Amino acid sequence: MSSHHRRKNQAKPVRKNLHPRNLHNQGYDFPALVKKHPALAPYVKPNAHGNLSIDFATPLAVKTLNAALLSHHYDIGGWDIPEGALCPPIPGRADYIHYVADLPGLEKTNIKLLDIGTGANGIYPLLACQIYGWQCVGSDINTQSLANVSEIIARNPSLKEQISLRIQPDKNHIFEGIIQAGEFFDISVCNPPFHASLDEALKGSQLKLNNLARSRGEQKAQSQSPTLNFGGMGAELWCKGGEQLFLKKLIKESHAYSTQCRWFTSLVSKADNVKPAKKLIRKLGAVDIREIEMKQGNKVTRVLAWTFI
């Protein structure tokens, strides 16, 4: 499917600063999305600039947009997540997959990917599978999250052969208990929990809402009951020590599995966490470290990739 995606994309001018192969460089084609996924129709309205859009502060609207995008662009039907689960931005998640696909050694066809903390949305295995035809394993500590991904796979029989799910029985481990003896992955991906506590996660959610309201020229969003408007069940959004400590644990444990995975990668949402992470990776003897910058509009995120092979 990758060559089809590649050809389709190169003819068009890139507007969104996304990876050149990313299908979302042109923004959202709402009429086409509504046609493919009629449930989106009630949420699509002209915004302040007169362009069709949705209210990104409404969780159900965002979730329905995701279902429409996955159906229209990636042939994934019936995508859904439980209330309160993390709702990922599809263009940004596709960008991660496209950028890591450019890493050395990942140009072959039979690539095996491990997603650490796949959540209830299972987004990385779903995209990697449909864009590049990779074999994927999704792991998580939450059985309900994995049950939901399992349901998505069941609604898309073609995915059954390509995606498998594993429960992490010990919250203190990342690769241990997931990577089996004699098993080899070409790449591991991860979207770490970035807050250090539930309270911090709630404040972050409120800040996000206020920023959205400001960008639409509205008053500050009303402080709502402590729910996370962008979703995220427990471990999806926060862990003790936040992103920095999680990255430290991920990097240290990656060293123990250095011969069983070619590239270890992780999203790093806080720029301040990059330097100490790189320092630790170097100290552990990685032979190649890469910091990949991803841009979406004005937002910049980064992926850290390292290999001991």
Rank of each mutant, 00 (worst) to 15 (best):
L70Y: 12
G241N: 04
R290E: 12
D288L: 11
L245Y: 11
R155A: 12
I309G: 11
D140G: 05
Y99G: 12
P104L: 01
E236H: 12
E236G: 04
A41R: 04
I116A: 00
E83R: 15
E236A: 07
G105Q: 01
L209A: 08
D55M: 15
P42R: 01
D199Y: 01
H98V: 06
G78C: 08
S197Y: 13
P89Y: 02
I90C: 04
L165C: 06
L70Q: 05
R166N: 03
L202R: 11
E176V: 09
F30M: 05
D199A: 12
Q162Y: 03
Y43L: 07
N51T: 08
W79Y: 04
L40Q: 04
G133K: 12
K45F: 03
V100Q: 10
E83T: 05
A57V: 06
G77S: 13
Y43C: 09
F264L: 02
P46C: 08
N229V: 14
P91Y: 12
F194P: 07
R155E: 15
Q224I: 08
I76D: 01
I281C: 08
E236K: 05
S188C: 11
N25Q: 13
P157Q: 00
H98I: 08
P125C: 10
L52Q: 07
D80V: 10
H98T: 09
N66K: 03
V287E: 08
C136K: 04
S71D: 09
L127H: 13
N121R: 10
I81N: 01
V149E: 05
T265F: 01
P89S: 02
N17F: 07
G77R: 15
G78A: 07
T259N: 12
R21I: 14
A201D: 05
E293T: 10
I167P: 14
Y132D: 06
K108V: 03
H49Q: 04
I187K: 05
H195T: 15
D102Q: 14
N51V: 07
L23W: 00
T58I: 13
G234F: 12
V34W: 10
G133R: 15
C239F: 00
P169E: 11
Y257K: 06
P89G: 02
Y74V: 14
E236D: 14
H98Y: 10
S71T: 14
V62W: 07
T301W: 06
A256R: 04
I163Y: 10
A85D: 11
E236N: 05
I123V: 10
A286H: 14
K12P: 03
R216T: 15
L69A: 08
H195V: 04
K171T: 05
K295S: 06
W134Y: 09
V62D: 00
L69G: 02
K252V: 12
E183R: 07
D272I: 11
K35A: 00
Q135T: 07
N9Q: 11
K112R: 09
K299Q: 04
W79V: 02
G232D: 13
E183P: 09
G119A: 06
K249I: 05
V62M: 01
N156I: 04
M233Q: 06
Y74F: 15
H73A: 00
R262Y: 01
D199P: 10
N121L: 13
I179S: 03
S188R: 13
F30T: 03
